[in-house]
Design a protein around this nucleic acid. Structure first.
Lengths: 218, 218
DNA sequence: ACCTGAACACCGTTCAAGT
DNA sequence: ACCTGAACACCGTTCAAGT
């Protein structure tokens, strides 16, 4: 295990400061997840990171799910904490808000896997929906249209972040197969250069604008 | 383990017919996954379903990933095998094609989790992209626009299937909190009835149409 | 040739015991 | 009061041995 030492008459472990508590657990979990990814976050590994025994964690959190939910809350507050986009143009404000969410998720891919594991969004994510609905209403959507658009936009955003690297993989798969005109794949051969070009930049915003404009045009 | 019996002079196990092979493994895996979900599909459980030892599977498949990939291929061929939508109107054809994919995925939620685990689409899924690209070209999109739309549509579709039940959960979360006018959530209170109404039907097609029309309008 | 039991290096979590 | 070792019921997979 870890080296045990004595300092100021207090028995402690390497990297440890003060008694174990929920905040310290969450901070350590965030460190592990940002450094090594969410699939590496196990209760045993987390305990190791803190320098304690796996079972000690259970005095402060009910289970692993609760740890993940705390991480999601932290990210959610990271978004809603700073001022949300406030452009006077509601269309612009909606696009900017969703883009902020996208950018944060893109920078923290583990979030989507955590959401999948927890199967729930953290409470403070409602702030984002509130902000989006205000913009949609101001842009002229009625309640029903706004509800549909809200759902569609979220799904697009989740899909984009999560399947982004999968799209890249699939593109590579196609590339590895014959470059041009393989029987039955003439269309794909035709758009292949364009698809390759797409891989180099993030096209989230373009799809988002198309979708939002589609809703606004009805 | 399983009861061993002798029949026709051949030593066998309950539910077993003939020697172990890849096709029989895949069929058993499909049964498990459709009955109990993909999270229940373990090599041990799969062996149990067939009535063999876990290690016997490894003579016919390299690893669990390969089993999942075979399942994905089966579903993909289930879509591309039957005739794909062929409406003369390309917009309609595109919408119908994606809707077929959505419906199959909706009926087999485990597919998305399998895709996440495998991190790749089965080769035959390229048929669908081919079909989509042909429709998009005929509808007047250039290569670049088609590539962007293709990516956006896929992401929306994945997001919809996978986060569909999550949206439902989140909506319930909001419902359980105060029904109306909780401080700072006036907009949400306002659209809550519309959102509840949405839960009762599938609104995938509506979001898809908005997105496609948004792309066609550029 | 084909199959499989034991074992390895993992999980999350319970429970009884330590200080 | 707070922490933790041993144990349970799991994983995917390797390896050596069985028939």
């Amino acid at each position: 295990m870890h080296t045990v030492f004595v300092k100021d008459g207090v028995r402690g472990r390497v990297g440890q400061a003060g008694p174990l508590n929920r905040a310290r657990i969450v901070r350590a979990a965030m460190r592990v997840v940002e450094r090594d990814g969410v699939e590496v976050l196990t209760m045993r590994r987390l305990a190791d990171e803190i320098g304690t025994a796996p079972m000690s964690l259970y005095r402060h959190v009910a289970d692993k799910r609760e740890v993940l939910m705390e991480l999601l809350e932290a990210v959610s507050r990271q978004i809603t904490g700073r001022r949300l986009p406030a452009s006077p143009d509601p269309r612009r404000r909606l696009l900017d808000t969703v883009t902020v969410v996208h950018d944060v998720l893109e920078g923290n891919r583990w979030v989507v896997q955590a959401v999948l594991a927890v199967e729930e969004l953290p409470p403070s994510a409602l702030h984002l929906s509130e902000h989006m609905f205000a913009a949609m209403r101001e842009a002229g959507l009625d309640e029903r249209a706004a509800a549909v658009a809200h759902t569609a936009i979220w799904h697009y955003t989740w899909g984009h972040v999560f399947f982004g690297h999968l799209s890249a993989t699939s593109a590579r798969t196609y590339d590895q197969q014959e470059p041009a005109g393989r029987d039955g794949y003439e269309e794909l051969a035709h758009v292949a250069p364009a698809m390759r070009e797409l891989m180099t930049r993030d096209v989230f915003r373009e799809g988002l604008e198309a979708m939002v404009d589609g809703f606004l045009a009805r």
